[in-house]
Simulated assay, not measured.
Amino acid sequence: MDRLAHRSGKDLVTGEVIDVSRAEREAFWAWAVIETLRHTGIRIEELLDLTHLGLVSYKLPKTGEVVPMLQIVPSKCDEKRLLLVAPELASVLATIITRLRSENGGAVPLTARYNPYERESLPPMPHLFQHRHGGIWKVPSAATIRNLLDKALARTGLTDAAGQPLRYTPHDFRRLWATDSVSNGLPIHIAAKLMGHQNLNTTQTYVAVFNKNSSAPTGPSSQHAARSAPNRNTENPPIRNGTTSNSTSNSESWSWAPADAHTEVPASMNMLASDARASASTSAPANGSPR
């Protein structure tokens, strides 16, 4: 189906004329935002900085399997991060990439993003979160992302304990990720590294405290966090510093947490691993990094 073609329909209950094309587009990107945020715990600025070139490959030392990892360009500190792409996240990213390619002749569009903090336009990059606006590819603003979430929640009709419409901000998913991961066995000092926190106390403010007799949060991200957590008897947790194969300077500092407890490999993982290897062999932009 050509998603770019304008389509409208009529709600048989209310009689309202609906712009189906726009509704589908907004629903897709709201889903993509929610799923990416809840599986990574990244900030909204970091979400908008994600690019196709941010996919890098990592070879598991025990099995030799190549898995994709996602480069997070920092928004509040100088240390870049690499997150292991779990199967659930791989499926989301693969769906995003497939959609962008299908709407742009088989390639992820190169789009310049305006940085409101530095008040400048950044070099064109293959951003993962972008859309056509008036025939031009653009990276959405943080306000647009928040609006997508508000509309998605409004359509559900969900309310809080006071009966008010439920509202989630992008940062709420960061708190959910931290609580979910730590509650299911991920050591908090590793969670701090993955979240880009310099101070462990900062991470502790993100983690909700549960009574030991209450049920801990569950879900795909928490199950992956539990699988990825190191053995409690391990003296040196798997947090290392180094450089990636497509880094241009050995002075660049990185943090990552490779997990060897990976088993089943869905097609989306293979696709992203292949894309990661291709990205590593692609010439980097003039400044040597995706930002």
Rank of each mutant, 00 (worst) to 15 (best):
A90D: 02
P109H: 14
R291P: 02
T263V: 06
M1I: 05
P126M: 14
V139Q: 01
S214A: 14
S268P: 06
T14M: 00
H131E: 14
E264A: 07
L48Y: 00
S251T: 12
S222Q: 11
S221P: 06
S221Y: 12
S183C: 12
D78C: 06
R99I: 00
W254S: 15
G54V: 03
S75I: 00
S57N: 05
G242W: 04
A143K: 09
A267P: 04
P266N: 01
N104M: 14
R277F: 08
T98V: 01
I145S: 02
G163S: 06
K138Y: 00
N147V: 10
H131G: 12
N231Y: 11
L128E: 10
V66F: 11
E16M: 05
P237I: 10
G185Y: 08
A278G: 05
V66H: 09
T244P: 10
R240S: 15
A27H: 07
A267L: 11
V20H: 01
G185T: 03
T218P: 00
L153I: 02
S251H: 07
R291A: 05
F210H: 11
W254A: 04
K62C: 13
S214I: 03
H133R: 07
S21I: 01
T169M: 09
T144K: 02
H197R: 03
E88Y: 09
K62F: 15
E26G: 00
P258Y: 10
G196H: 04
E118G: 03
V67Y: 13
M195K: 09
T234P: 13
H127M: 04
A286P: 08
F28A: 06
G163A: 09
W31R: 11
I34N: 13
I145H: 00
H6M: 07
A276C: 10
I96G: 00
S57C: 09
N184Q: 14
L186H: 08
L93Y: 03
N213D: 15
V33E: 01
Q71D: 15
G41H: 11
R240M: 15
S57A: 14
A257Q: 09
L83Q: 12
V207G: 01
A27W: 05
S183V: 08
A30C: 02
S247T: 12
Q164S: 15
W137I: 03
R240V: 10
T282F: 13
T63S: 15
I190F: 08
K76D: 02
L55Q: 13
